[in-house]
Every structure is written in C-alpha cells, then in structure tokens.
Computed example of a mutant assay.
Amino acid sequence: MKDFFRKTLYNLGIILVSPLLIPFFLTSEKEIIDADVKRWVNVFGWKGESNLGNLLSLLDRQKEFRNLYYHRLFKGNLSARIFMYLFSYFYKSCPYLFIDTSSNFGPGLFIQHGFSTIIMADMGENCWINQQVTIGYRDKTSRPKIGDNVRITAGAKVIGGVTIGNNVTVGANAVVVKNVPDNCVVVGVPAYIVKKNGIKVKEELV
C-alpha cells in the first residue's frame, strides 16, 4: 500500500510539472539540457526512465535543477524564453541559489544542495558545485573562468578574474583568488595546492 501511494504521488508530480516540457520542445538548447539530465541521472544513479522522463523527474524533485533549466532556456531562443518567464511564476526555482544570467556553462553542470550558492562565472563541462559556494566578481569586470571537470565543494569561494584549470577540486571553505593549474586539489585561506597530477605537494598559487 505504501508503494502504491508513493507511486501515485510520483506520477501526480510528473503530471503537474509536464507543462515545463513546452519550452523544452521549443528551445534551441535541447542538446545541452539533455546533457545536463544525463549527468544528474548518472550522479543520482537513476535507472529505467527515458531522458524525457528523467527531465520531468528532475524538474519535479530537484529545484536546483530547475534553476539550471531556466538558465538554459534563458540562453536559448525567444519563444522558449517567453514560456520560461511565464512558467517560472508557477513553478518556482530554488530561492537560495543564484545563477547570473550572463554566465555561460558547458554541458553537465551538477549543483548539489544549492543552498546559499552564487554562481557568476564562465564554466566548462561536467562541473560540480556544492552548497554555500560563492563564485563571482571582484569588481565590475573580473569574474572567474573555470575549466572542465572542476568540483567546488561546500563553502568555497572563487573570486575575481582567476582561471581555474581542468580537473581541479577546490576544497571545503577554501578561498581562491589566484589562478589554479590543471589537475590540482587546492585547500585553505588563501588557497594553496595540496595535490598536483596525483602527487601530494604543498605549493603556493601564483
């Protein structure tokens, strides 16, 4: 009986968010949204649904994904954007996650626990952002540029016109104000390198 009610509530949720498919079918950003869906499904380990079914599940159950979805629609063509503006009044995004509309992200951005998180940056593919992260401007013109496969963990700050290389992990509560090369793990305030190309080190950022 419990499974029956759970399944009924799940199906009801899917039906209620189904209008959000209208801008998806209209948008020029279908390909990148599909890539986002596949990444989130892979992280969660979901199985058995079509990509369209998974999109609906994410829109119903993951408000952080809804923020990202609206951002993708905003970057697309006008017709999808109009529906996005309309539906965003009825289907609320996560209010504690701010994604700057001028930011550009590669496919596969995953946002875990988007509480108190600000993202103002250009970012590559398959990045991962945790809660209470701030990525943004030092002044009106200088904001971070972040590579592929970068993970920025809880409470970290990446500020100003810095470049974060590919395959970088920014440790919890680290503060990054200088460039980070590829294949590194950085921690601390200010951040320094503790692993580089798989080897433990202790190097200052320059």
Rank of each mutant, 00 (worst) to 15 (best):
P107L: 05
G188K: 11
L9G: 02
N126R: 15
N149W: 09
N77V: 05
S18P: 01
G13S: 11
V43A: 12
G106P: 02
F87Y: 13
D139E: 11
V176A: 09
V189H: 06
F5V: 15
S116W: 05
K30H: 06
S103A: 12
E49D: 15
T117L: 07
V43G: 06
K140W: 13
Y192K: 12
F44W: 09
K75V: 02
Y85C: 10
I119K: 02
K195W: 12
L78H: 03
E31L: 09
Q131L: 02
S116R: 06
N126I: 06
L16V: 06
L9N: 04
F24Q: 01
P19K: 01
I111V: 09
T163H: 12
C127S: 13
H71W: 14
T101L: 13
D139W: 14
K75R: 12
G160A: 09
L9A: 15
N126A: 07
S18D: 01
P23H: 01
D182W: 10
L59Q: 04
T101D: 11
M84T: 03
D148W: 04
K195M: 15
H71K: 10
A154T: 09
A35P: 00
N166T: 10
N166I: 09
L86Y: 13
N179M: 04
A35M: 13
L59T: 04
K202Q: 14
I82H: 08
K202M: 10
Q62F: 08
I135L: 03
D148A: 08
T163G: 00
D100Y: 07
E49L: 14
G13D: 00
F110Y: 14
E64N: 14
G165P: 05
Q112F: 13
L97A: 00
G160C: 08
N149V: 10
I159W: 02
N126G: 05
M123E: 07
F4H: 09
D3A: 14
T169Y: 04
T169A: 13
L68E: 02
N149L: 12
P190Y: 08
E31P: 02
Y69N: 00
V177I: 15
L205G: 05
F110A: 08
L55R: 02
P95G: 02
F44N: 12
F110L: 11
A35R: 07
N54H: 11
G198H: 08
K195Q: 12
L73V: 04
H113E: 07
L55Y: 05
G147C: 14
V37M: 05
L56A: 03
T101M: 00
K38H: 11
S116P: 00
M120A: 13
I119S: 04
F105P: 03
G160S: 10
T27R: 05
G45C: 02
Y137Q: 03
N77F: 09
V158D: 03
P107D: 04
G147S: 07
S28Y: 01
T101Y: 13
C127F: 08
L97Y: 07
K196N: 06
N51Q: 14
G48C: 07
W128G: 01
G155N: 07
A174E: 12
K157E: 06
L52Q: 01
S102T: 14
W46Q: 04
F83W: 06
G76F: 02
M1Y: 11
G165A: 11
E49M: 12
M1S: 15
L12I: 15
V168Y: 08
S102K: 13
K200F: 15
A154H: 08
F65S: 02
R151W: 05
I129W: 04
Q112P: 00
V189F: 06
V176H: 07
